[in-house]
Amino acid sequence: MAGKKRDKKPLEFRNTQLADALQTQDMAALAFALRHGPTVVPLLRPGQRDDPRDDGEVWTYRDPNTGDVALLLFSDAANKPAALPPGVGLQSPAWLRAFLGTHGDQITTVFFDIAGPHAMQASPVDLLAALEA
């Protein structure tokens, strides 16, 4: 007797629409991809598996010279540089909206796929506007 768990597809840590938008450097397509799909986020501390409310602790980059804070987001976990913490989370558009709404005044810029293949950046204000469009 085949169990349903065996038939379940493994969770994919990527957003193909976001990767396509980054490839074309199209801000409208990027906004659409963020509103309708997940985003891969580097985690300093992964969430607890038995607590669905625990998303983990998001890793951000703080420039040691200026103190500026950057949020790094990825279209695919494979695009995350190995130098970053190893954990990743797959976050929803609602999560990204809430995170930027809470921490947007501390974040200077948001980088997408910072190490490539098609890096792009935006301000938290622009991303919030895109998410709420």
Score class of each variant (00 low, 15 high):
100 L>Y: 01
43 L>Y: 01
117 P>D: 08
50 D>S: 11
129 A>K: 12
52 P>L: 07
69 V>H: 01
105 D>C: 04
81 P>F: 13
59 W>I: 07
29 A>L: 14
113 D>P: 02
123 S>I: 07
7 D>Q: 15
27 M>A: 11
12 E>M: 15
48 Q>H: 06
61 Y>L: 13
28 A>V: 15
116 G>N: 07
101 G>N: 05
63 D>Q: 03
26 D>L: 10
52 P>K: 06
61 Y>D: 05
3 G>P: 00
4 K>G: 12
29 A>N: 05
80 K>I: 05
111 F>G: 09
107 I>K: 08
33 A>I: 03
118 H>E: 03
54 D>N: 09
14 R>G: 04
77 A>K: 13
34 L>K: 07
51 D>T: 02
68 D>I: 05
21 A>M: 10
30 L>T: 13
71 L>F: 07
39 T>L: 06
90 L>I: 12
88 V>D: 12
66 T>C: 10
54 D>I: 05
79 N>D: 15
102 T>S: 12
36 H>S: 11
38 P>L: 02
66 T>G: 09
94 A>L: 14
114 I>K: 09
87 G>T: 03
62 R>H: 06
94 A>I: 08
69 V>D: 02
7 D>L: 15
11 L>G: 08
41 V>F: 01
67 G>Q: 12
25 Q>E: 12
127 L>I: 14
10 P>Q: 14
128 L>C: 05
12 E>P: 00
112 F>N: 00
96 L>H: 05
68 D>L: 14
103 H>S: 09
111 F>I: 02
122 A>P: 02
12 E>A: 15
85 P>F: 06
131 L>S: 08
86 P>C: 11
85 P>M: 09
121 Q>D: 12
14 R>T: 04
80 K>C: 05
33 A>F: 00
64 P>T: 05
15 N>A: 05
69 V>T: 10
72 L>Y: 12
100 L>I: 12
24 T>S: 14
30 L>A: 06
23 Q>M: 11
10 P>E: 14
129 A>H: 08
133 A>Q: 14
51 D>M: 04
76 D>F: 00
3 G>Q: 11
131 L>Y: 04
74 F>V: 03
88 V>Y: 08
114 I>P: 03
44 L>M: 10
5 K>G: 13
130 A>R: 02
64 P>W: 04
61 Y>N: 07
76 D>P: 01
129 A>D: 11
123 S>H: 06
17 Q>P: 02
99 F>G: 04
100 L>P: 00
9 K>M: 12
126 D>A: 14
30 L>G: 01
127 L>A: 06
54 D>P: 02
38 P>N: 10
72 L>E: 08
31 A>L: 03
89 G>F: 01
98 A>M: 09
34 L>I: 09
76 D>V: 00
